[in-house]
Amino acid sequence: MSVGVAPEQEPLIRLESISKLYGSGDAQVAALRNFSLRVAQGELLAVMGPSGSGKSTLMNILGCLDSPTSGRYWFAGEDVSRLSETQLAHVRNRRIGFVFQQFQLLPKLSAWRNVELPLLYRNASDRRSLAVHALETVGLGNRIEHRPTQLSGGQQQRVAIARALVTDPDLILADEPTGNLDTAASREVLAVLRDLNQGGRTVIVITHDPEVAPIARRTVHVRDGQLVQQKAA
């Protein structure tokens, strides 16, 4: 997509009446109810809401890690529900970078081997230099051979961010990237995310952290699986 997208053009993300139900019978929980949302290319969107309101559920559906019970999801104009397993794998690999709340690094692999993982699934040739470059971007150029257990929480989270951006994706999804970090580490991580957005990527961040809101252009609030408020910055 070109710079200067007109608002009526197809957004990067379009959710129409998404519902996600867990369990069945009396134990059934509606994690998302009739949820609709559009996110344009190049936005930095913050998602806020109380615990259990459905933020992670929303993020997992946006990242094609889970499928909704009903409703439609168009990613870059494509109806995700029509994609095969293999096509979904390609979307996750090429277009989306996911930063998990719990880091999700493989403990047996060094930092750069962890960052290299998504490149393995796209036959990139200069994987090591790409991984090292991504680690330098998040300020970890001097930790490339360290195992996750040898890194601090903030460093692990930055390795996870490096892994999300190494494939140069259109969309970066970060589920409470600062949830486990102290203030200083949080600032570093947020700075990295803002730089990525300024580099042209669409970034969606889930957060409880009020410091995130100011850097976001738009903040949405989720309550009981529903969108309650949209606030433009």
Binding site: Q104, L117, Y121, R122
Partner: peptide, 16 residues
């Protein structure tokens, strides 16, 4: 299993 989930999330196809 969680490693398999992670690899899938990062773009591994069922064939991979």
């Amino acid at each position: 299993t969680s490693e398999i989930g992670l690899r899938k999330a990062l773009g591994a196809t069922p064939g991979d």
